[in-house]
Nucleic acid binder design. Structure first.
Length: 430
RNA sequence: GGAGACGUGGCCGAGUGGUUGAAGGCGCUCCCCUGCUAAGGGAGUAGGCGGGGAACCGUCUCGAGGGUUCGAAUCCCUCCGUCUCCGCCA
């Protein structure tokens, strides 16, 4: 959510930033709504002040036994009531009209974010490693013999519908072990505190992180009104909601391994083969809460934490800075990490590290008290995948595949696999 | 699912109709004292919104909304949330 005072004082800058995101200018509308809001608040408060004064005088009149004055003042207070409630209602309506609009406006892009209309204009900022070389045509993950054994799409579809899979045997273990490896690394090497979180959240949490009001269609809502999280960013970031924390206690660095649920309403026909895009998937998420001056550095740090995992897993990747047209609703700047998938011959997103500035913090009222004793200020929030577990599994399968249908697994997983670093063509760990 | 209790400031915790935006404690900030990784004394310290250059003024907020009253944190209603006990259960 945006600071209306910023809009009021910097309308041209505000509209200019929106324009970079291909959004129409809104400052004039916002300022108009704000003016109406402030006018009606002023009128309501004026009426309230009158009432308060009369009411207090009435009390004094009664106390001193001046009953004539008391009756007069009492009538005055009564008369003011209707007028006040009308003005209050008006002020409330005007405030809500402004907030309703503000809640639908995406975050403004960071100055560093490249302009562009879609993912083709994202800016590559880094590349690590080289694509593995094969003396055969590399296959997509679900066609690799050793992996296909453990991918039961038929049962997944029978039980739950399309875009659900059952992992079986060694593949299920490999998937589980990957998440352990990721969380362990974040906890022991990256300074994150592991959290075990609910995946069912109250509706207001979905507003706080920005899924609502515009993107409810991409998530699942339960019959009691609560939501299944599309990412544990929702659970983790909202830990700070409604709080005023000491500056000295920041940054918060949390990570969690959770199920994520996405209805992907708009993704019909996209990535239908394999387990790249599922309604239910696992992700290890990192969330940081910082003071404003530290959030840029924190985003770089967080990106490095995600990249480090891929390097440990010996997976070729590149990091891109999303252009304005590809930026998510709440993000100010996003670095996507794309892993090389030999079977597709493409880089595919495996992590997305975003800074939201104070955008989410305003929505969820997450603040800190400055060490110098000043007034509370909004924190900055950041989130990043570290990493998407299913996609990491895919990457390991496709990058490690061999001509006979077996898969060589990265050495970093050795402690988790009892040193068995090969998936046989029959789908066994050997 | 059944029964009950509760919801106050950064935190804990008083407060059942009238300067109570709110005692007290903790925490924090500043000052004093103290020859020292201790203790003591004093002062200050809620948030939002509106107006103002500022000092400051106004207004709202004691879970939320509504009601009673000249006046409510305090009384009434509704809702939300939390906790406890019982039941069921991983």
């Amino acid at each position: 959510m945006h600071d209306i005072r910023f809009v009021r004082e910097n309308p041209a800058e505000f509209d200019g930033a929106l324009k970079r995101r291909k959004e129409p200018p809104l400052s004039a509308t916002l300022i108009e709504l704000d003016a109406a809001r402030r006018r009606s608040i002023g009128e309501a408060e004026e009426a309230q002040a009158l009432r308060n004064r009369a009411s207090q005088e009435a009390g004094q009149a009664r106390a001193t036994g001046n009953l004539t004055a008391f009756e007069e003042l009492r009538a005055e207070v009564s008369a003011a009531k209707d007028r006040i409630s009308k003005l209050e209602r008006e002020a409330e309506e005007n405030s809500r009209a402004l907030d309703d609009l503000l809640m639908t406006i995406p975050n403004l892009p960071h100055a560093d974010v490249p302009d562009g209309s879609d993912e083709s204009e994202n800016l590559e900022i880094r590349r690590w490693g080289n694509p593995p070389e094969f003396d055969f045509e590399p296959l997509e993950h679900f066609r690799i013999a050793g992996a296909a054994v453990g991918l039961d799409f038929e049962s997944g579809a029978k039980i739950s519908g399309s875009r659900f899979v059952i992992l079986s045997g060694a593949l299920a273990r490999l998937h589980r072990v990957l998440s352990q490896f990721m969380v362990d690394t974040h906890v022991t090497a990256n300074g994150y505190t592991e959290k075990w979180t609910p995946v069912i959240v109250r509706e207001e949490m979905m507003w706080g992180t920005g899924q609502l009001p515009k993107f409810g269609g991409e998530s699942y809502q339960l019959t009691d009104g609560k939501w299944l999280v599309p990412t544990s960013e929702v659970s983790l970031t909202n830990i700070a909601s409604g709080m005023i924390v000491a500056e000295g206690s920041l940054p918060f660095r949390y990570c969690a391994h959770t199920q994520c649920f996405r209805s992907e309403a708009g993704a019909a026909g996209k990535d239908t083969a394999g387990m790249l895009r599922q309604h239910q998937f696992e992700k290890v998420e990192m969330v940081s809460v910082t003071v404003p001056r530290c959030s840029d550095d924190e985003q770089r740090r967080m990106t490095r934490c995600a990249e480090g995992l891929l390097e440990e897993l010996e997976l070729h990747y590149r990091t891109v800075s999303l252009c304005t047209g590809d930026l998510g609703f709440g993000a100010r700047r996003t670095f996507d990490i794309e892993v090389w998938l030999p079977g597709q011959g493409k880089f595919r997103e495996i992590s997305s590290v975003s800074t939201c500035g104070d955008f989410q913090a305003r929505r969820m009222n997450a603040r800190y008290r400055p060490a110098d004793g000043g007034h509370p200020e909004f924190v900055h929030t950041l989130n990043g995948s570290g990493l998407a577990v299913g996609r990491t599994l895919i990457a390991i399968l496709e990058n490690g595949q061999r001509a006979d249908g077996s898969v060589a697994l990265p050495a970093a997983l050795s402690p988790y696999l009892n040193g068995k670093l090969m998936l046989s063509p029959e789908g066994d760990l050997v």
